[in-house]
């Protein structure tokens, strides 16, 4: 059995790169869902079974912090683990993300090995 992963980033390039990194890291998955902002991510989580979310922070419409805040208020999705993948790695921002339920962060730029190291323990 694999994993269902949701990639949230306003850059289609970055969604492709993260997906490629997951494959290169040898992480097995059944489905990769994509969303371009927090609002779209919430819609996907309402409809699909997702095991893990990888989310950017700096996005239009609903950024990664607002997404975490809204997700935490929805009982059907609040326990799905979220990792932030972002250039935003300041202690205040990552601290706020973690206080809202993010379980970890990966800094851009990253390598497949870095992705595997952070996500591996959380995937089936």
């Amino acid at each position: 059995m694999g994993n269902n992963v949701l990639l949230v980033d306003d850059s289609s390039t970055m969604r492709k790169i993260v997906g490629r990194s997951l494959r290169q890291a040898g992480i097995e998955f059944d489905n990769i869902f994509e969303a371009a902002d927090g609002l779209q991510a919430l819609e996907v989580l309402e409809k699909e079974s997702v095991d893990i979310v990888l989310s950017d922070i700096n996005m239009p419409n609903m950024d990664g912090i607002a997404f975490l805040r809204e997700k935490a208020n929805r009982a059907n999705m609040k326990n799905i683990p979220v990792f932030m993948i972002s250039t935003e790695t300041g202690e205040d921002i990552i601290g706020e993300a973690k206080s809202l339920g993010a379980v970890g962060a990966i800094k851009k730029p990253f390598t497949p090995d870095m992705v595997n190291e952070v996500l591996g323990p959380f995937l089936k």
């Binding site: 850059s11 250039t87 935003e88 790695t89 300041g90 202690e91 205040d92 990552i94 851009k108």
Partner: peptide
């Protein structure tokens, strides 16, 4: 745009430590 984003994020990290 994403290259600019990553470079901008790194410049932000250079100029500030707490990110806010």
């Amino acid at each position: 745009g994403e290259l600019a984003n990553m470079l901008g994020g790194n410049v932000k990290t250079i100029l500030t430590q707490n990110g806010r």
